[in-house]
Amino acid sequence: MAIGDALLARARDIPVRRAGRSTRWTTVGLGLVVVVLAYLPYVAYTTVTDRLVDFLMLLTMATMWNLLAGYAGLVSVGQQAYVGLGAYAVLQLSDWGVQPYLGVLLAAAVCTVIALPTSLLAFRLRGDYFAVGTWVIAEVYRLLIVRDGDLGGGSGRSLTTLSGLDHTLREALTYWVALAVAVLALLGCYLLLRSRLGLALTSVRDNETAARSAGVDVRRAKRVVYLVSAAGCGSAGGVLLVSSLNVHPDTAFSVQWSAYMIFIAVIGGIGYLEGAIVGSIVFFAVQEIFANYGSWYLILLGALAVIGAVWLPRGLWGELRARTGAQLFPLRYRVDTPVTAATPVPVER
């Protein structure tokens, strides 16, 4: 008893925290980046913000896929289900008189609601079969949407409720919404991973059996992640609609979205929030440079994914972190004073 108390007393005096001095600066830095990005529509051409909308949309999707695969170990090839459903949710809500920009946020809620029963089915499959199963489910949603004539059926439809807005203003608003969605997605993931659930997820990722025996409700933790991921992808789908102003089931539910999410996460680093950011930047740069090469550009991306998955499994960020210890989002606990068995800590009491 006495020994235990003494140890606890010692432990209390060892400063353990997540944020170090450097991470406080990166927080300020990230905040500045967001402010600058938010200010951009006042100073930049719409062509720039237009491209950035695409970037932010991909960033959102990749962050969500990364959360799913990197923290819950769920590889999905069917997240396009929620991209498509999100886009169509905004369309349907706008038909019912809901402002589309508000609809983008509501799309998250709609997708969460749809994802709950979906997860009951999808979670019956494990590992690799889960991946293909989610793909089938995305196909089912596409085929169901195609059957809905009011939503344009197989030929798609346009969003007309935004046409009253001034072009420049609409572009700016779309950009801000995309930025807000991306920031919320990253912040949401960050807070989720810092919470108790995040701890549970990390333990599941490191050793599922051990986590289970320590009392972690693994299924519940995974389900929550699946729902959050659906919500994020739903909003990204909403952004897709308000930026392109029309939607086609084959595009909205294209497996291409999952492909992009996977490429970004693999290149940037699965299991690191920063990985999605780094991956999105690289992906976007590759897209800008090689877009004119048609399918060669996709062949290159495919090759990068193969090489990344097998020879560089930690991705760019993981490699960087292994070398420098850098982290933008402080998720790990750190002990400020290095404590080892060899250096006894004086009891300051």
Partner: peptide
Amino acid sequence: GPLATLLATFGLSVIIQNVLLQ
């Protein structure tokens, strides 16, 4: 690791489709 094969074969799928397309 458990993810690597899925991701690698997915990349392979994209490569094959586009090489055939070319």
